[in-house]
Every structure is written in structure tokens, then in C-alpha cells.
Amino acid sequence: MKTATNRLLALLLAVASNTQATTPESLQPSFDLRVLDVPQAVTTDAGTQVFEELHLTNFTDVPLRLVRVEVVDAQDGRVLIRFAGDALQHRLAQIGDPATPSDTVIPPGRRGVVYIEWPTPRRRPRAIEHVVTYARLSGAHTDIVHGARTAVSYATGAPLGPPLRGGPWVAIHRADWARGHRRVFDAVGGQARIPGRFAIDWMRVDDAGHTARNDPDVPGHWLGYGAEVLAVADATVVAIRNDMAESPTVSGNPKHMLADDAGNFVTLRLDDGRYAFYEHLRPGSITVHPGQRLRRGDVLAELGFTGVSTGPHLHFHVSDGPSRIGSEGRPFTLARFDLLGNYGDLSELGKAAWTPRPAREDQQRTDEWPAENVVVRFPD
């Protein structure tokens, strides 16, 4: 009897130690915090960064103002990154049209998304939690809510081969662009996803930074137009489109519906289970068909000017499923490329040369994701 009582007491103590105490804070209605997709890490020449999106839905009947958002190591509570003020405002977007003039105020029943990237410390956290400090508009008092605990994925799959040859090519992407690939959700099939979370638009330039010869309004005058597009790994062709016509001028490219925004495309299922997407291809140039087996380096098509495009380029991204807009974007690395420099201000693209990489720094890069707006050369 005594043994049974001791066991029951031990069980009750264990349950009590694992039960979060009820506090005034825990009873305060506020935000529902969610991380819909597992945070994904990727390595560039600047180190490893984790990409994630924190969704905050206001479940109260009053507007709430975000004051601070922190990402902490779930194991020891160490703060990994925090955003407040302008830094937080620039990372916050609300679903739908904002109902208030302040970008940090989330109205009742509305959802905001904080787009977050944070550099990994030497000891990589396996799980993280989020701490949100907020206030009601009626007073200066702040409250805190903890939540959205999640694991972190550091898997990027086997390094990929180049999608193009030679160069220079500009890797166009940037995390803070309001309508950049990294911040565009597609809600199809009952779930909101970011297919282009790690997408890159590849645009060819010459050594002076020009993107076109002669008249840049003619797609065929662009330096990258007609370049051969390559399979980045051993793969099977899943889907293609080869019949969309090109606008005869860049300025006259019409608006496209969501189903047509990729233009002509090729989708590959890589042998490791990931999917690679190539978009804006030249009409009639696709040389592969669904079900065909490919080897890394095989020619798929030619770079063109179809779909939603401001000029001939290759859109490339990797995701976890075969749907171009109904899958989550996944990180990838390229096995090898030369890092020539970068554009600190992309508005200079086509007008001026990029900033060269310092001579003391190694140009040859391996197993990395090209950082934002860098200029690279692929093996020929």
C-alpha cells in the first residue's frame, strides 16, 4: 500500500512539474501565434541563416500594437534575434488591406505575418520559441505572449549543379522586398504557402553591367535570351508548358492570370524527392517531355520572356511538391560557382557595373545558396 502511495505521489509531482502554471498573463486574450512551415536554414558566403514566418492573429475585440518580436532558443531561452521599431515594421505585413495607418497595429480578427531571418550561432538551436510584446492602443502598458514553438530544419539536400552556363549572371532576390518571391503567399488547396521562399531570378549581364545589346525593349536583344537551361540533378520530368507566346516588346508584355504567370516552364522531380521549377522559357524551345529521365547537365530548354516578367531571365526555385504554387519553397545549395561581386543597389542593374568581390576573398564557392543580388559565373 505504501509503495502504491509513493508511486502515485511521484506521478502527481511529475505531472505538476510539467504543467505550466496558470498566471494572469496566460489568461490574457491576445494573439494566436503560429509558424505554419518549419523554419528552414540555408548557407551563403555570409554564413547560415534561418528563414521563417511568424503568423499573428488578433483574437481580441480591440486593436493590438506590436512592440517587439523575439526568437529564442527553446532549450535555454537565449534570444537569437529581436525586432522592434522600424525593423519590426519593415518585416510585418498584414493579410489584406491594413485597417489602420500604423503598420504595427493589427485590428481585431486580422492576421499579420512577420518575415524573419536570423543567423545561426555556433551551437545551432534545434527548436525555437517566439516571444511577442504588445500593447493595447488605449494605454501604454505592455503585455507578453509566448508561443509558436517549433523545430528548425538544417537539411538542404544534395548540392545542385548549375541551372545555366558561364556568366556573369545576377542572382536576383532579396528578403525584404514587399512583393519579392520570399514574401508572396499562394493560398491554394486550403493552405497558404510560399513556393518561392528561396527562389532566384537569373539575369545575364556583361562586364559593364549591361543587360541588353541595342534596344532593350526587344526581348531577343537581352544578353541571356536563348541561353541553354540545364538540369541541376538527375531527375524525372514532371510537367512542361511550351506553347505560350512571347510579347514582341518588353514594355508591351500584358498582364497574366495566376495560372499563366510562370510562362513556359519545366518541372523536375529530383531523385532525392525535391522538385525543381524553371520558368519564363522561350516558346518552342523545351526539348524534354513528362516522364523522361534526365542526367545532371542535360539541356531542358532556352531562357526566354514568357509570363510575368520585366525582362528575359530564368526563374528557378526548389520546393517540396510538384505544384508550382501549391507547395512550400525549400532551400538549396549549388555545388560550385565563382562569386564575382554584387549589386548593393539593384536599381543600378543595366546601368552600371556591379561591385567586384575584394581580391583577398576567395571567388570559388562550394555548397552554397547565392546571396541576394550577387554576381556569379558558372562552370562552362
Rank of each mutant, 00 (worst) to 15 (best):
N58I: 04
A21H: 10
R282A: 15
V232H: 00
L303Y: 02
P108L: 08
Y278P: 01
V71I: 12
G224T: 05
L36A: 12
G147P: 13
T3N: 14
R295N: 00
Q49D: 13
K351E: 15
T5G: 08
R110S: 07
I128M: 05
G273H: 03
W369A: 11
P290R: 09
S138H: 06
P358L: 10
L258V: 10
A353F: 07
R91T: 09
R110K: 12
V152M: 14
K255L: 14
G189C: 10
E302K: 03
D97R: 13
D86Q: 11
R336T: 00
L92D: 07
A140G: 08
N6V: 06
Q191L: 11
R183M: 07
W354T: 06
S26A: 02
V218T: 14
F198K: 07
L80D: 08
L164K: 01
A335P: 02
T236H: 06
L33A: 04
G109I: 10
V376G: 03
L11V: 04
L314R: 03
G112F: 01
R197S: 09
Q94F: 05
R336Q: 06
P108K: 12
S153H: 13
S153F: 09
A335R: 02
G112Q: 07
L12G: 04
N58R: 06
L281E: 03
V38P: 01
G77T: 05
R269M: 00
P162C: 00
D271L: 02
F51H: 08
L56N: 05
L12V: 09
V288I: 11
M1F: 09
P219H: 14
S138E: 14
Q364D: 13
R123K: 15
L88D: 07
D86G: 09
F332H: 11
P370K: 11
H130W: 04
V170G: 06
R78N: 13
R204K: 14
Q20T: 06
T60A: 03
M257D: 13
A192V: 10
R110L: 05
T3R: 15
V375W: 14
R193W: 08
H256C: 08
H173Q: 15
W354S: 00
A371F: 10
T104I: 11
L66V: 02
R165E: 01
T333I: 11
T57Y: 03
